[in-house]
Write a protein that binds this DNA or RNA. Structure first.
Lengths: 248, 248
DNA sequence: GCTTCGGCTTGATCTGGGTCAAGGATCGCG
DNA sequence: CGCGATCCTTGACCCAGATCAAGCCGAAGC
């Protein structure tokens, strides 16, 4: 999960096209080369489950390209997404040996993985990395709690607007674009995945998307390409005061 | 937030009646005495706000007695509880200088506080403590995500049952009682606070409590004293498979 | 070109939980 | 002992969003 507070200061890891948020900005090249030694890449196809909740997880790592989601499921099939992983986000629970959620690739996905044992050893030897990991976990916790407010107290329309603002903001920061008025991005989720994120049904998601479009809050080119003529308007629809909002 | 996975292994800190979950089990007495040097106690009255979201927070610490909550509020007053702090729970965000949520004492409360700067310094010098802090944050993250499923996908009745099962379980573990059938505990929350935790209204909470009582899932002595004749039945009502459930 | 299929939209209807409103129980206090 | 005050319960009604159902659209395959 993203952070508004901690910009991505981390060093480039070898030939990875993304920067590993797990790697502290203060790490020297020695430490980077240690990371280099234990890393490997893996690709997954859209729809593939990377780990099942409860399974042993033998690596940690970062998303390089593509989108993954963390979901929880009840026996009767109700599912709730509890995390959205975009490029540069970290996956894994150092110190835990099994996954607490299903991790699913929703698009084709490339991950840069580190074998867990050596990574943990490195982490224990390298306070900066441990420190950065705590930072990241606190960021995720903030994001999760922010999401609790969305799930518990917002209307369907506000939920959709909140999700769009988060994805838009995240997309802009990945592309190093300031939040100027008028942004445009590709929605990386199906209506169903959006519904699972928001605790809604896909029909309600669809209706509210149509409604936001009808009211000029967003424009849709096709079903997935979204542009937002006025970001503050979107934030208002999301029930957030136009500055900050996330992580008050 | 509690952990099922990490039992409270930490050493007793000086004269605190609780064990500080922040302190790693492997800490030696030297480290404990360092903690001893920077700690102090504070009391709060029921209803008092300990920190406001966004305010500078100059300490971290543990709840000694009483209950506190973490809440987020929208401008129009809708509020969502995002964390429930029971005795021995840790409060604070090492490395962050301002609070992300309101911290409110819902009963009279005593906290054992550590001044933040020295605590962070100690943490940086003491990998075990840093490690334990990461553990605890991961536990809180699990709890928050578990709660996202509750908020997003459960019915009112399931939400109530989930909350009761969490409080009951937590209470039992504090008192070192195994989850034998037949537990009994004092509800530390008003109906309104329960509603804020569950994303419901207080009327709905009240109705569902009555309904669970009518159906023999719980018994109520007065408004706050709850007994659960059959814990598995409660878990079933909560929509959880009777083992584990939390943190799958 | 036609067919199929997954993803999406839209309509009609139903219902869980919100809202509004009227008390009831328990407590501390003068 | 009566008076608020706080917290809780219960009833009547309503509406946002779920559910059920019927297509639409665009890409892939033949």
């Amino acid at each position: 999960m993203p952070s508004k507070m901690s910009p991505d200061l981390s060093l480039q890891c070898g030939d990875c096209p993304i920067r590993h948020r797990a790697v502290c900005a203060r790490c020297d090249s020695d430490e980077l080369s240690l990371l280099e030694d234990i890393k490997y890449y893996r690709s997954y196809e859209a729809g593939q489950t990377i780990v099942w909740s409860g399974d042993r997880m033998e690596f940690v790592g970062s998303v390089v390209t593509g989108i993954a989601t963390l979901t929880q499921t009840m026996e009767d099939g109700r599912t709730q997404m509890v995390g959205l992983l975009l490029p540069s986000d970290f996956v894994g629970r150092p110190g835990r040996d099994s996954a607490a959620y299903n991790v699913v690739a929703t698009t084709d996905l490339v991950m840069c993985c580190f074998r867990k044992k050596p990574f943990e050893a490195l982490m224990n030897r390298t306070p900066h990395i441990a420190h950065r990991l705590l930072e990241m976990t606190l960021d995720e916790l903030d994001a999760a709690r922010e999401w609790m407010l969305v799930l518990g107290r917002k209307t369907a329309r506000e939920k959709i607007a909140s999700l769009l603002s988060i994805i838009g903001r995240r997309d802009a920061s990945l592309r190093l674009i300031g939040t100027v008025d008028g942004m445009s991005f590709e929605l990386p989720l199906t209506r169903e995945a959006m519904a699972d994120y928001l605790g809604l049904t896909l029909e309600t998601v669809s209706r509210q998307m149509s409604s936001l479009k009808r009211d000029g809050v967003i424009e849709l080119a096709g079903k997935r390409q979204v542009s937002v003529p006025d970001f503050d308007r979107l934030l208002e629809e999301a029930g957030e005061d136009s500055d900050g909002g996330l992580v008050a």
